[in-house]
Nucleic acid binder design. Structure first.
Ligand SMILES: [Zn+2]
Ligand SMILES: [Zn+2]
Ligand SMILES: [Zn+2]
Ligand SMILES: [Zn+2]
Lengths: 136, 136
DNA sequence: GCAATCTTGTAATGAGATAACGTCACACAC
DNA sequence: GTGTGTGACGTTATCTCATTACAAGATTGC
């Protein structure tokens, strides 16, 4: 088995349950919301969720949205190789759109380089209204 | 007086105290850290800090760092007009560098436009090591 | 078997943020 | 001057988010 790329078949029981909750959801979920949804599956404590989330984020199956303190299942096929992901978060319907852009990533790397900053992780979160919600 | 641009002279007592704490600090501070620093000035409750912070952020004198749940005094002269600010946060020494870049902002606006996303606020936070901390 | 390692369960606590209430000071109309 | 609206302030309680600490099972490799 590939040791870097994970799919849902590799997951433990708790990881599978948490992944399922996120995949079923239309938008991001907080850890405690996930906990509530999994009470019937034997979840009793936040740590059960957080431990699973840590792994899922590590595997690249889930992204953490810093500005929401919430988590979302990755729906961007092929964001594995890319560590510069921009999230467009609709403040009305909660929908999250995940995009990568080489020009954007290149510009950020350029800026970091000019400042001699050793870039490890980038967080880009755009807040606003999605196409649908602008009409309403 | 200009009704949009604020300087420290416009601030209330609590706002001045919170602004002072942030200005004195080399790096970002959490609301509760600020609270502790201002106990001697009569601060007793988190809300006193949060209320002041809300206003200071609104005035553009302070920025909130989403990935740290912390606040930092603006040290970027002229970031008023620019709503696309990138923060470079050193994970070792905590120093925060604030930069604006027209190419970066333009690309983000472009991407939002292509998705018909009505952009309201952008969060860009780069984590890594500053020049000094890479040597050590 | 046995040790090393990983995963899990549980309780307690720490850290970040807001709700709900009442008070006070001040500007401004009447 | 009295009423009224507005904004800042103080206090308590509560809510949400996240981690520490400790113990117990499961898994793997030898
Ligand atoms: Zn993704
Ligand atoms: Zn929407
Ligand atoms: Zn600034
Ligand atoms: Zn540093």
């Amino acid at each position: 088995m590939n040791e870097h790329v994970h799919d849902t078949a590799d997951l433990t029981k708790n990881q599978t349950l948490v992944m399922g909750a996120l995949t079923r959801s239309k938008g991001p979920l907080s850890a405690y919301t996930i906990l509530d949804q999994l009470r019937d599956n034997g979840f009793r404590a936040p740590l059960q969720v957080y431990r699973a989330l840590d792994k899922l984020v590590e595997f690249g199956l889930v992204h953490r949205l810093e500005s929401l303190n919430a988590f979302v299942a990755c729906r961007h096929p092929g964001c594995d190789g890319d560590d510069t992901i921009a999230f467009m978060i609709c403040e009305r319907c909660g929908q999250v759109n995940e995009i990568t852009d080489t020009a954007l990533a290149a510009r950020l790397k350029q800026l970091a380089g000019e400042a001699s900053f050793a870039l490890k992780k980038t967080t880009i979160e755009l807040r606003g209204l999605c196409r649908t919600c602008q009409a309403a």
